[in-house]
Amino acid sequence: MPLVRLMRRPFFWILALAIAVFALAPVFGNNVALREALILDAVYITLASNLNLMLGYAGYINFGSIVFFGLGGYTCVWLVNSYHWPLGASLLVAGVCVSVLALIFGLGILRLRGAFFALATVGIVEAVQAFAENFTPWGGSSGIYLSGDIFTPLGGPARALWVIYFMMVAVMGLSLYLSYAIKSSKFGLGLLAIGQNEDAAAILGVPTPLYKALVYSASAFLPAIAGGLYFFKSAFIQPSDAFDLTLSTEALVVAMLGGQGTVAGVAIGAFLYEELRGYLLTSSMFANFQLFVSGALLLLIVLFFPGGLMGFIYRHFPRTQKVLE
């Protein structure tokens, strides 16, 4: 659907307002602590929102969405470190490379249906991690350290962290709009049809292999850029951080919590989950139980609220369905 038509809908502006508030919140009072909390939120929202393209629209579970984040991180950090590329170009190339890779992989493994695809995605994480551990230009298992002066082009470390924050928020915003635009498009309708009944969709003329591969590839682009930003910010990347399955899992929990297949729900879910996690990490009782709590939360959602938060809101306030996507 053309952008102009999207802009006529109230949800477009609700989303824009929310993103603007998000971006500016830490600016007032130069609140660095808030900024650091929000940048993590932005990562969660980016990952969950792109995961949702597969999960909520096409009905395919990707347990390994973290590979996009990690590979994007590696590509970007490597280009900055070994070839002294500027950050912007490195990010863009990382995004494009990972998307293309996902397209190629997608055309292969998306021949697997349903649960088999989900199982294969775990394998992709294993494969990519094994690759990173054995690939010498990426430093093998010890990873890549960036030198201290990488922040100089961005105006020194203090200013660089703000620049990175705004870029991350932009990536988050783009993720939400991508999600929204796809949902309102013919492509999105085709994906929803696949998610409901893949055989029927094909018989109706939806080019299922192509669409699945395309959405898999699309769901790789922005997470790869987010990974690039994230590991550029840490100035360090190693396989166990880059391909940490916990983050994939959390993205899944977030998407389910907010309501799979919705745009706003995933953002709200990420926010709530981050808050909950922050609380659990600081309370001594739960510090070791993070995985346990994620699991329990996911179980409760799957068992009792398969529609997530947005499903709950839609059910109790049906009129919101017309405004919130």
Partner: peptide, 10 residues
């Protein structure tokens, strides 16, 4: 939407 899928991809 069901019918729109038919029309879109027919």
């Amino acid at each position: 939407d069901n019918c729109t899928v038919g029309a879109c991809f027919g």
